[in-house]
Design a protein around this nucleic acid. Structure first.
Length: 324
DNA sequence: GGCATTTGACCTAA
DNA sequence: TTAGGTCAAATGCC
């Protein structure tokens, strides 16, 4: 069985478990067995993935047939996030990453308006959980300072899309922009689209300590399996599949941080230091945490590729770049 | 006063 | 023609 099949099988088992969670609440042995099965699936998948070349097309077939309900669940889960990152990476590899001069958001040139709708725009879309504490209406921190310049109701979307550009756009002619929109079916998730690259930290007059790069082009399909950020275990408060998917994605970080906090990054100290926690209720949920731990805490010595989502914040504070 | 946000109007790619 | 993206005046906050 290939890695993807194992992952999908594991997802099915997890979904089954989710649906029966209420019934099995008083059956720890059964719960434990189910978790073991799921762990076994993901562990097997991880083993195969670790031994495979990242660009092995067999890992992620273009059209994997799955049942609709599972697919729907996956749409909001870690697998899809991984796919998003991978696809984004692939599409970016196909284009000239250098965007200097292109799509410059020079506000004085009206003829360039809406240029971001062009297909060749340097775009990367990721999904990020809303801050659990503080103002959950704010998009997640990403180490850059943004100025909101617009908000728009989007057809077919429940929530408006907010438009941000780099605070230093004028000062450093930085073309970076981002769009933030809540997911229709998950109020606690943002879809963040980054457009253009930051040039503000490259300017000779820019702050000497540059913030980490914007969510970069991820080359490693395993990126999603790396720890993201430390934070409390965040189980879903509802039984919706989408929520579980979201929560599972958050579990990545939990397991990562709890596994000895080895470096690499991911340390989420940043968010924690900033007094921000992502996700929802901080309730213990050990069984699935174990599962996620088995899924993502491989003990891999690779560096934390998820820094792009929750990068180190030390730089930021040191640079004193936070002016929001 | 300076800066950020809001919001209606405008522009333009699809 | 429509919907997404941006502008810019008004407003609010520090």
């Amino acid at each position: 069985m290939d890695a993807l099949s194992l992952i999908l099988h594991g997802c099915r088992l997890a979904k089954d478990l989710e649906e029966r969670l209420g019934d099995l609440a008083n059956q720890p042995e059964t719960l434990s067995r189910s978790c073991d099965d799921i762990i076994h699936m993901f562990a097997g998948a991880r083993e195969r993935l670790n031994n495979a070349h990242p660009q092995d097309p067999s890992l992620f077939p273009q059209q994997q047939q799955t049942d609709p309900s599972l697919q729907e669940w996956l749409n909001y889960g870690v697998i899809t996030q991984a796919m998003d990152v991978i696809q984004s990476s692939i599409s970016m590899q196909a284009m000239d990453v250098s965007d200097s001069g292109r799509g410059s958001s020079s506000s004085s040139q009206r003829s360039h308006r809406s240029s971001s709708r062009k297909h060749d725009e340097d775009k990367r879309t990721i999904r990020l959980p809303a801050p659990q504490m503080g103002n959950t209406d704010l998009p997640p921190e990403d180490n850059y300072t943004w100025r909101k310049y617009g908000q728009k109701e989007i057809l077919g979307s429940k929530y408006p899309r907010a438009y941000y550009r780099c605070t230093h756009q004028k000062m450093y002619d930085c073309p970076a922009k981002k769009q933030v929109q809540r997911l229709d079916n998950d109020f606690y998730m943002f879809e963040v689209t980054y457009i253009g690259q930051h040039t503000c930290h490259m300017s000779s007059t820019a702050p000497s300590i540059a913030p980490p790069p914007a969510p970069p082009l991820v080359q490693d399909p395993m990126v999603i399996t790396q720890p993201m950020v430390s934070q409390p275990i965040l189980p879903p408060t509802s039984s919706s599949a989408a929520t579980l998917g979201t929560w599972l994605s958050m579990e990545v970080s939990v397991s990562g941080s709890s596994s000895g906090g080895r470096g690499g990054g991911g340390d989420a100290s940043a968010s924690s230091a900033a007094g921000i926690r992502y996700g929802r209720d901080a309730v213990e949920f050990p069984a699935v945490a174990d599962m996620a731990d088995a899924m993502f805490n491989s003990g891999s010595s690779s560096s934390n590729s998820m820094d792009f989502i929750f990068p180190h914040r030390e730089d930021k504070w040191e640079a004193g770049d936070k002016d929001n």
